[in-house]
Design a protein around this nucleic acid. Structure first.
Lengths: 248, 248
DNA sequence: CGGAAGGTTGACGAGCTTCAAGACAGGTGG
DNA sequence: CCACCTGTCTTGAAGCTCGTCAACCTTCCG
């Protein structure tokens, strides 16, 4: 089996948490390859209206999908951490409607041609299923975000996002849920949570003053997980991966 | 080929708008069957935490997924119109995190066993792909909802929802985008848009006074589509089905 | 006729935005 | 080494959107 890009063991790891993969399938995914590149912030990796023929695997750093209004206001609809294949859904709908950008200063991705992903799906139905399940799991997070911005106030929303990221980071092996690197600025948190940067700042301050959490040097430190989770109304069920991961 | 439930030609119609299906595949889907039932509002078809072994096809009426906070506040995360297979994603993640309920007074669904859907996927990779694409398309709508509740004010949000539903109804052959039946009460619109019922009422009144649209006898009538779409910042790209619907 | 459900309206307050300014840090050039 | 600049964080004050509470109205239906 030819060796692919070394970062893809992160991808196998993530898929295996949700789906059952045979050894053949694992090896097939590990043999994937693509163009590695570093992306600077505020530059679209893919932009709305484009038809793309690649998906982007996050090696290090953070990526995000942005929706944009005509007046320039932005809303982040998804945050992708290392190990995520963002734009996997574009394999099904290659015309993308959202901008994908770097969220952190240093973002390294691998661009994987749809051609190769499609070949894998044809050869191994189990891989197609794992990809499908991955898209659905992203949708589950998206549902939670709708609830978040729709029905929680700014403080709950913020607490909820930090809980979600903590759990996702931990599951991906990138830190503990109570302490993880988050190389983003407050403006971007505001864009993710649907508030203004000014208000974002006040909310973070208030949570710091209440002893819930602190952010220093791009690192989140949650001092009281239970209190934060309660304040957020956080229930990690929607991130639960290891359910009855049967094969079709 | 055994005849299945007659309503599934709506399903084939919808899938065919997004994906290319062979005649065999169409016939296979049409042979699907399940238990038809009528559901009254405020009763969970499936509830959070349950593990389900069926998906629900909407024959007539409206269904919705609800997220709920501990204090009882609700947020609708998806509205399903006739022809939608809601809970299709549960084929991949059978443990559901959201409540599925009737939105309209009279909702008729067909409960299709996962077993049968899975058998179809195994026998016809093209059907699996169409299902996958359907899930992704739902995710695309969900992204737009995040932008909606995150960055648009109540008036824009409302206008946006009526535009979206208009286009979806039209594509499904259930009316014109400027005139369609929407058998829901204002409380439910408020739950979908993340505002209070009182404010919902004021927004609808204001839009009526501005000559944008009216709702009478559960029927939406959009008097000035262009003005409404502009007020909403509506761009139907994210609902566009007929893109390069290639097969893998 | 009476009750229930949904729609409508007013008054008031809270949460969030907007505008504006200042503090602080890191990086650059003289 | 310091002056300066730029990006980020922080804070205050004023105002608007939206939520809350409460009441009343209309329609429908038994």
């Amino acid at each position: 089996m030819p060796r692919g890009h070394p970062a893809f063991d992160l991808f196998v790891r993530k898929l295996s948490q949700r789906s059952i993969l045979t050894e053949d399938e694992r090896q097939a995914i590990l043999s994937l390859n693509g163009r590695e590149m570093e992306v600077e912030p505020h530059r679209d990796i893919v932009g709305p209206g484009q038809v793309t023929d690649t998906s982007c695997f996050v090696v290090s750093g953070l990526a995000a999908r942005f929706g944009q209004l005509r007046d320039g206001r932005r809303q982040i609809t998804a945050i992708h951490i290392p190990g995520d294949m963002c734009d996997l859904y574009s394999l099904m709908l290659p015309k993308v409607e959202w901008a994908l950008q770097a969220l952190s200063a240093r973002l390294t991705i691998v661009k994987v041609p749809h051609r190769d992903l499609a070949a894998l799906c044809r050869a191994y139905p189990g891989i197609a299923e794992a990809f499908w399940r991955d898209c659905v799991a992203d949708g589950s997070i998206l549902s939670q975000w709708v609830v978040n911005v729709g029905r929680r106030d700014a403080r709950m929303r913020t607490a909820h996002l930090f809980c979600e990221l903590g759990v996702r980071m931990e599951k991906a092996g990138l830190g503990q849920r109570t302490r993880y690197r988050l190389p983003v600025v407050q403006v971007q948190l505001a864009d993710a949570l649907g508030v203004t940067p000014v208000h974002m700042n006040r909310v973070i301050r208030s949570m710091r003053e209440d002893g819930l959490m602190t952010i220093r040097a791009r690192e989140v430190h949650i001092s009281d997980w239970a209190a934060l989770a309660t304040a957020a109304g956080f229930d990690e069920g929607y991130l639960e991966l290891r359910q009855e991961a049967r094969r079709l």
